[in-house]
Nucleic acid binder design. Structure first.
Lengths: 203, 203
DNA sequence: TCAATGGCAATACAGTCGTATCGCATCGGG
DNA sequence: CCCGATGCGATACGACTGTATTGCCATTGA
């Protein structure tokens, strides 16, 4: 066997180029040749590492998800030991929101893939699982009654903030303020234990 | 002058076909020929009514926005006179959420356009204005301190619920429950006047 | 050293894209 | 009546798409 190259690494490089193109010009500008040019390689090479465009797309989608996961765990570990649930949530969500230009680029890619998977149901299975995990994790941090409900709501709020941040409807300061207020509400509902004084109807 | 046709009507028909294509196969499947076929007209005719594809896209985008506006005002007027703010909000948001197959199709189109405008900043100006209006309107219905903040949060929550509904992460029942709980929190904060018992920090 | 195999580039191909242009009806005002 | 503007279909064109195929080069095991 001749030369051995790190196949996975090359594929990731190409996926990175794809994400750059998608972030700047949208997913419909993603073609083999564009991605190859952005990656600084030949079109034939892209074809060599991904037999089909769909394979490349799926791989890139996985990379995006993986990156987000890593971002979250990184943020959590950097937070030190035993942070308060409130700080933990604020950090995690702050990490996931497109608040600076770097995360905005990622956000645009994620949004593009969101629209992409919306018309390709099979591709969204992993997304569903990821959300489910996230809801479970966040629910464990919330002192509200029906923490699953509150967790899902918090996640939805985050997603919506992300969308509006990308669209320029909200400023980063606004988004942070909204998130703060919401967390205040969630944690004020039951400061000590899981039994609230508000919300007579649990669901 | 010969034959006079209702230009606006024809354009709307074509835009409808575009939205059907976008809802089923995504925005990248939208081409003059596809749209023409879906509309049951010749490709030349589409070209006759929209000199460029971008013009067609922009028009369709406006139609989508307009439809949503109409849907809201319709729902509001059907609600009778002097509804409670809470019912009003529930109805409006319930109308905007992709809860059944019809509104899901619209949601997919909206999501596609969201990603579309995310990489075309000039096209999102109208979106910004629409959101601003909406925030102002909703803020007037909320009894919280800092109603603008709460309104923006509610809107973001709605958007996020929409995204997760489309992705299949949340079921319609879940989404309704989350919305309910959130409204409970917002209205429980100050049952009578604009001064809450929870949330010590207004912003 | 040499055959062979994997890495990669180049090209070919059929199809679709957006746009421009032509051609022909059809109907209204002079 | 008929001239010309308008509605609309058909076709042409160059650019670009994803995929398949071909062939060279470098490296490596025998």
């Amino acid at each position: 066997m001749p030369k051995k190259v790190d196949r996975q690494k090359r594929r990731t490089q190409i996926a990175d180029a794809l994400m750059r193109v998608a972030a700047e010009q949208g997913l419909e500008a993603v073609s083999l040749r564009h991605v190859a040019a952005e990656a600084g390689v030949s079109a034939g090479m892209v074809q060599h590492y991904f037999r089909t465009k769909d394979e490349m797309m799926t791989f890139a989608l996985d990379v995006v998800r993986e990156r987000n996961q890593i971002r979250v765990t990184d943020a959590v570990t950097h937070l030190g030991t035993a942070p308060s649930p409130r700080d933990l949530l604020q950090t995690i969500i702050g990490t996931l929101l497109p608040l600076d230009e770097v995360t905005r680029a990622d956000g645009r890619v994620t949004l593009a893939f969101l629209a992409y998977t919306a018309v390709r149901p099979p591709a969204s299975a992993a997304l569903r699982e990821e959300t489910e995990q996230m809801v479970g994790f966040i629910a464990g941090l919330l002192p509200c009654p029906d923490p699953e409900n509150a967790a899902a709501g918090l996640l939805a709020l985050m997603e919506g903030l992300g969308v509006y941040l990308l669209g320029g409807q909200y400023t980063p300061e606004q988004a942070r303020g909204i998130l703060d207020t919401h967390l205040d509400r969630l944690f004020a509902a039951a400061p000590e234990h899981t039994g609230g004084i508000v919300s007579a109807r649990p669901a």
